[in-house]
């Protein structure tokens, strides 16, 4: 398959990217290309100029933040995240999710920033970032801003990133002390994409749930916080009954989508199951 013709240019540093994004002539950013290049080949997308940002040092790698937690450069690949000792120490849940993204070859090329910008409704990284209270940091030629992942994703393949902005890094804060995280997904076997996936982070204090973040992927128009589940957890006793009852609210307020692999009713029931499993595993890992 041959994409429609385009121009290609390798970016000459971060300032070059920000300047190119600030002009009226549209450029499309290319990082690992594991979503964009197949889209171009299938002619689901057509671009004028690809600006390759895959080799900009400032956008790459994992660091500890002074404020606590870690920051992951936008063009850090999935396998670099998997092999990074800081991620293993600070964000084991993220590591668990990333290990299931794509396959080895895709993880060797695909980047976290590229996936966040692409915002596939079934992207596993989205519920993971929502449950971890991650922040997306953006820059343009004239501005910098950072906002929560919750609110960044607006719908299928749609985010609040402006066309002149670049995702520079993904920030993962330190979890509450003693918190446990878990990830559960049921995937369509041929494609590997999640039919429904759940990420959960729970902290327990004096036998009661003091912190709950639960997010769902695959089921709705984009990854989304399951706020009805969270509300049914916080301040309640950390018992199996609480977790099971909360999981039944998995898709409350979420427009569950159906497709040829799983209709909305089946997806809803899978969502409840993965949320319950994730809650049980997160509870088992949480102290107290």
């Amino acid at each position: 398959m041959i994409p429609a013709a385009f121009d290609y240019r390798r970016a000459d540093g971060l300032d070059d990217v920000l300047a190119a994004l600030a002009t009226d002539a549209p450029v499309t950013l290319l990082a690992g290309g594991q979503s964009l290049l197949p889209l171009l080949k299938l002619r689901l997308a057509e671009v004028g100029t690809l600006l390759d940002i895959g080799r900009i040092p400032e956008l790459h790698g994992v660091r500890v933040r002074d404020e606590g937690g870690i920051a992951i450069g936008a063009t850090t690949t999935w396998n670099e995240i998997l092999e990074d000792p800081l991620v293993a120490a600070h964000a084991p849940l993220l590591r668990q999710v990333v290990a299931g993204i794509g396959d080895v070859q895709v993880r060797n090329r695909g980047t976290i920033g590229g996936s966040v910008a692409h915002a596939d409704p079934a992207a596993d990284i989205v519920p993971a970032l929502l449950a971890l209270d991650a922040t997306i940091a953006l820059r343009s030629a004239t501005s910098r801003r950072a906002g929560p992942a919750d609110g960044f994703f607006r719908g299928p393949f749609e985010t609040v990133r402006r066309s002149d902005e670049l995702i520079v890094e993904i920030r993962i804060p330190a979890l509450p002390a003693g918190a446990g995280g878990a990830w559960e997904a049921v995937s369509q076997p041929a494609s590997g994409w999640s039919i429904a996936a759940a990420a959960a982070v729970l902290a327990v204090s004096d036998g009661r749930i003091s912190h709950a973040r639960v997010a769902l992927g695959g089921a709705g128009e984009c990854g989304v916080r399951a706020k009805a589940v969270e509300a049914a957890l916080v301040d309640r006793p950390a018992t199996p009954e609480t977790l099971t009852a909360a999981a039944s609210a998995a898709t409350e307020g979420i427009a569950v989508q159906g497709d040829l692999h799983a209709d909305a009713a089946y997806r809803t029931s899978v969502a409840r199951v993965v949320v319950r499993r994730a809650l049980e595993a997160a509870r088992a890992r949480a102290a107290g």
Binding site: Y8, Q34, K41, D52, Q105, R109
Partner: peptide, 8 residues
């Protein structure tokens, strides 16, 4: 390892 059909 990369899939060379999806690397420019």
């Amino acid at each position: 390892a990369v899939k060379s059909c999806s690397v420019l």
